[in-house]
Amino acid sequence: MRIACLGLLLVCSSVLAGQKEDPMAFIKNMPYTQVVKDMTLARCIAQVADPKSPYSLDAARSANAMREWMPFDIENGDAKINALINQFKGTTHQFHTESPQKVKGLTLNCLRLYHSPELDKLAKEVLLKNPQHTWQQDNPN
């Protein structure tokens, strides 16, 4: 019996060792509303960063990749999210008195957007399926 269990353990271990970890697993296991919020944050960062920078391009590509892992209403959702980003991204903030006045706080604007009740509400509106479901729930193996 021990030899059989040991053999089974070795077979299972070798099968699992050959599997690659899914780099998108964390997104597939988040509620769709959370994916919308994360996508919006990435899109906001892409829009406020220097458009010629690799960072802006990376943030935009990350946002687009997240969109593929949820039942997102592309026809209406993109315009609504961009309108909300535009509402938040232009605000100028006063920082500590030692900081230069030309600092706008663009990252802070994106973070304010991320934590806003407006985005919480919009995240549910732009989804075509149950907002609390995850990709994994809707697509089991």
Rank of each mutant, 00 (worst) to 15 (best):
Q19G: 06
F95P: 00
E75Y: 06
G90N: 10
K28H: 05
G90R: 04
S14W: 11
E68V: 03
Y114H: 09
K124Q: 15
E125S: 09
A123Q: 05
N141E: 13
S56G: 10
F95M: 12
E118W: 04
F26R: 07
N130T: 06
A17F: 15
H115M: 14
H93P: 02
P71A: 12
A49F: 05
L57V: 09
K129L: 09
K20T: 13
I74N: 06
Q101F: 12
M30T: 00
Q19P: 01
S116Q: 07
M39N: 01
H115A: 15
H93W: 15
N141S: 11
K121F: 11
S14M: 13
F26Y: 14
E68Y: 06
A63H: 01
A60W: 05
P54W: 08
G77E: 00
R43F: 04
S62H: 00
A25R: 14
K129S: 13
L8V: 09
T134R: 12
L122F: 06
Q137L: 15
Q34E: 06
A42K: 00
V36K: 01
L128F: 06
H115D: 15
T92H: 14
E21C: 05
N64S: 11
S62M: 02
P117Q: 12
A25P: 00
R61I: 04
N64R: 08
R61M: 08
K102I: 13
L57Y: 08
L57K: 14
F26E: 07
K124S: 12
